[in-house]
Design a protein around this nucleic acid. Structure first.
Lengths: 156, 156
DNA sequence: TGCATAAGCAGAATTTTATTCTGTCGATTT
DNA sequence: AAATCGACAGAATAAAATTCTGCTTATGCA
């Protein structure tokens, strides 16, 4: 289950985090190693689930996703046992993140929609229909100052 | 400034969002087009800032980032004009996102640290030293159910 | 301690890609 | 109608990915 990352692994992660499409050859050059050795490591990192996926950050405005909001949900599931409220939220495409947070059955949900009205209709048509949702509190983002999917790579 | 995306562009975005390291040749095959044509489009998407960056999603636990928290900050900048509070927050490596939200000078900040104590010391050492920060309210994430940097690609 | 095994790497060979260039076709402009 | 532009295919070339072989050094184990 565990997996120890050495400095070379960390350097690879750092460079790939900054640019997932860096060529293996470039990686090898920058780290002064053979491409075959780097490839071996990258594949191992993928296999060990250190690397989860490679993704492309798209400008939300370019695809009409101009509104970003965070929604706090309170679920009223008395004894409904661990309902799948979270799973139902996660199934909504516009929902980007679902976090279970401290506090009585609370979720923090990040949503992107075209505009305010589409958020409203989304909430009415999908979110409110999920059982056990007692209350919601929505926070609209006016401006995003920083948005980095980057993690802090420990530099040993 | 504007840029119209046709169905081919959207298909490209969708596939690259799912896997930023897909080869241009594969893309071309899947869309039944010549690699040169696809390459042209991808470069244009990059240039037009539709594609922002290619990034690698790393398992946070693998690099000792086990704690995720959202912090609400209230800035008390009376007439300090638009201070650079946000910029100072953004400069902290552990801070992943900074959003300016509705409400009197409020920010929503997403932070990842090793554990609770490191979050505490981070707040004491860095965040509290930022001028004009009046109050903070921290929400600890117990479990992340969904975490997709994916945007909903409109399917015309 | 000493042998056996496995991990990590370099280097070369081979298969695929990326990239560039040229020319076609159709739509738009003038 | 001629000129121009955009989008694309196809071919040629440069570069990269991938695989394989062995070498070297840890690591394990008897």
């Amino acid at each position: 289950m565990e997996f120890n990352l050495d400095n070379i692994d960390l350097a690879i992660l750092e460079k790939m985090q900054a640019n997932a499409r860096i060529s293996n050859a470039d990686l090898a050059r920058e780290l002064s190693m053979a491409p075959s050795a780097i490839l071996e490591r990258v594949k191992k990192l993928e296999q060990k689930d250190v690397i989860r996926r490679y993704t492309t950050a798209i400008n939300p405005a370019a695809i009409q996703q101009k509104l970003l909001a965070f929604i706090f949900l309170r679920s009223s599931e008395g004894f409904t046992c661990c309902s799948d409220t979270a799973a139902q939220l996660a199934a909504i495409p516009e929902v980007q993140e679902v976090h279970h947070i401290a506090g009585e059955d609370c979720y923090l949900v990040k949503v992107r929609t075209t505009d305010a009205s589409s958020l409203m209709s989304l909430m009415r048509s999908k979110m409110q229909k999920i059982p056990n949702i007692a209350s919601t509190k929505t926070t609209i983002v006016l401006e995003t100052v920083k948005e980095q999917p980057d993690l802090v790579i420990p530099k040993t």
